[in-house]
């Protein structure tokens, strides 16, 4: 049989030590909702699984600076329905509840959600070339079925998109990913720097180092409870990944924009956000014209690959729609 070791870590230090001492491929396992599927498809072939569910990472706590720390092993369901998340960060709650299905949300953890892998058909089918699965073998999606694929930030090596809804809201909220490892100890990675664009290394999806463990996600104080919207455009109303999703958050002074955040899902290898473009709209009126101009700039340079051409106009419309809904709240 395929010999896999399965160990339950009792504390963070132990988990990291275990991960670093093992020979072969090591994976931490939380809910396992994506990892186990990938193992059945033989896409992920770990030698060792380290169960992190016993670690004390299952709490949601206030931070000293007035934010909220979401433990890595808290389930997506418990996070989305957490009172403080619902009240202070309704954008995150809404995005998380738009994801997957009830059963999956009850199992999936916050750390695992960030590490879930693309839904590219070719990535899952080991009989087809895929640079993400087998570097250098080629990208089957470029000239294959690519309706669900990226239009922004993609490369000739990979046009896969990131499937998470939660990460899109986190990107809009400027969350920080807390990680711990043997070499660098505790460190924080801003969410926008956590995931990577494919470039010529599509198999490396995050800036997490070998053996590093996500311990939590920190939300800053500001949660945009007044003006927010999460719109997920998908092929069916449940248990379907986003074709395009938009997390929008605004702060207004009358009709004037004082802060604006727009993150997109389903369109790139990572949650897509351009803070430099957003800043140009500080002080401007929260009007449809401005939203349309902003949408245009955010989608600038987008490329379609045939099946996914429709995402370009769709993304623009959805941005405007999300911003409009957000200010009407």
């Amino acid at each position: 049989m395929n010999n896999i070791s399965f160990t339950r870590a009792e504390n963070i230090e132990g988990a990291i030590k275990k991960a670093n001492n093992k020979q072969g491929k090591v994976k931490f396992i939380g809910g396992g909702t994506n990892l186990l599927d990938l193992m059945k498809y033989r896409v992920e072939n770990p030698d060792h699984l380290i169960d992190i569910n016993e670690l004390k990472l299952s709490k949601i706590e206030s931070t000293e600076v007035g934010g909220l720390l979401l433990g890595a092993t808290v389930t997506n369901a418990d996070t989305a329905y957490h009172e403080e998340v619902e009240q202070r960060y309704p954008l995150l709650s809404k995005a998380m509840l738009a994801a997957a299905s009830t059963q999956l949300r009850n199992m999936a953890t916050n750390g695992g959600n960030l590490l879930q892998r693309t839904r590219c058909y070719y990535f899952y089918d080991t009989s087809t070339p895929c640079n993400k699965r087998e570097p250098g073998s080629g990208c089957s999606a470029l000239e294959g079925f690519n309706r669900i694929h990226a239009i922004l930030g993609e490369s000739e090596h990979c046009i896969a998109s990131h499937p998470s809804d939660m990460a899109v809201a986190l990107a809009a909220l400027d969350a920080t990913v807390k990680v711990t490892g043997e070499e660098e100890g505790h460190r924080s990675i801003p969410i926008l720097e956590f995931h990577r664009l494919p470039g010529d290394t599509p198999h490396i999806e995050t800036n997490l180092k070998d053996g590093e463990l996500i311990t939590g996600i920190e939300l800053p104080k500001k949660g945009f409870p007044e003006h927010y919207a999460y719109i997920k455009v998908r092929d069916r109303p449940s248990y379907a990944f986003a074709l395009v999703s938009v997390a929008a958050a605004l702060e207004l002074d009358g009709e004037e924009i004082t802060d604006i955040r727009i993150a997109l899902g389903g369109v790139a290898h990572k949650p897509w956000r351009k803070p430099e473009v957003e800043k140009e709209y500080y002080g401007k009126k929260a009007s449809r014209e401005n939203f349309e101009a902003l949408a245009e700039k955010l989608i600038e340079g987008a490329t379609g690959y045939g099946d996914n051409d429709f995402k370009i106009p769709l993304a623009k419309k959805t941005i405007v729609r999300a911003l409009t809904e957000a200010i009407e709240k």
Partner: peptide, 11 residues
């Protein structure tokens, strides 16, 4: 969804 390059159902 059958890929015409290999006759394989991709979904």
């Amino acid at each position: 969804m059958m890929d015409s390059r290999n006759g394989r159902i991709m979904n």
